[in-house]
Amino acid sequence: MLELRLVQGSLLKKVMESIKDLVNDANFDCSATGFSLQAMDSSHVALVSLLLRSEGFEHYRCDRNLSMGMNLGNMAKMLKCAGNDDIVTIKADDGGDCVTFMFESPNQDKIADFEMKLMDIDSEHLGIPETEYEAIVRMPSSEFARICKDLSTIGDTVLISVTKEGVRFSTKGDIGTANIVCRQNTSVDKPEEATIIEMETPVSLTFALRYMNSFTKATPLATQVTVSLSSELPVVVEYKIGEMGYLRFYLAPKIEE
């Protein structure tokens, strides 16, 4: 028996809107730790990792570990039917072939339940070690989204370079080139507008902007985004989900031939 009650149901709506275009089908894993997902996009260059810790739910009952295969597009369609202020409860029976999403309005005057069929999904689970990154950039998520969007009108790839001077986002295309440099800005009175660069070693990596733009669909989840870089490793773009967890995107770098 599984029963997870999330008072801030809008978080789940936002998570689904962020990942449904990147990943079609995925297994949601439920354990005593929390509700999690790890899934790759169809071309196996990007990976989504979601964790919603059990402590973040108002009620969390998971009698035994359960893996539920879901079509994310269909799940997003159902969650779209929940109001932004609704409380969302996810329910499933052990060994059952469906999951129920229950939506309660804040004053309990409307209760809806949507039942969705589960599916069997064969997925490869990657073992991602905890890594010390050479450079970690924390910046406003809206600024990062704006940069990725702007650069994708000029080129297909972005070169992200972190040096002592700041973080540089560069692209080039048929019509010309573009460079955007963000310097460290530790705004004390507005921490959500800060840009903080922690750098052990200068690092420069190239990524496909198409994926970066897809990751920025998670912008409504968090005011800040963390971009972690190490030479010859996938970048990690992380959006914190309040105090309860995170949505991380991993993207393999492009290597010059």
Binding site: V45, L47, L126, G127, T206, Y250
Partner: peptide, 14 residues
């Protein structure tokens, strides 16, 4: 001019 790497080239499969 770039080749796109796959994630499996970096991380092991569990």
């Amino acid at each position: 001019q770039f080749s796109q790497e796959k994630l499996q080239d970096f991380y092991g499969v569990n």
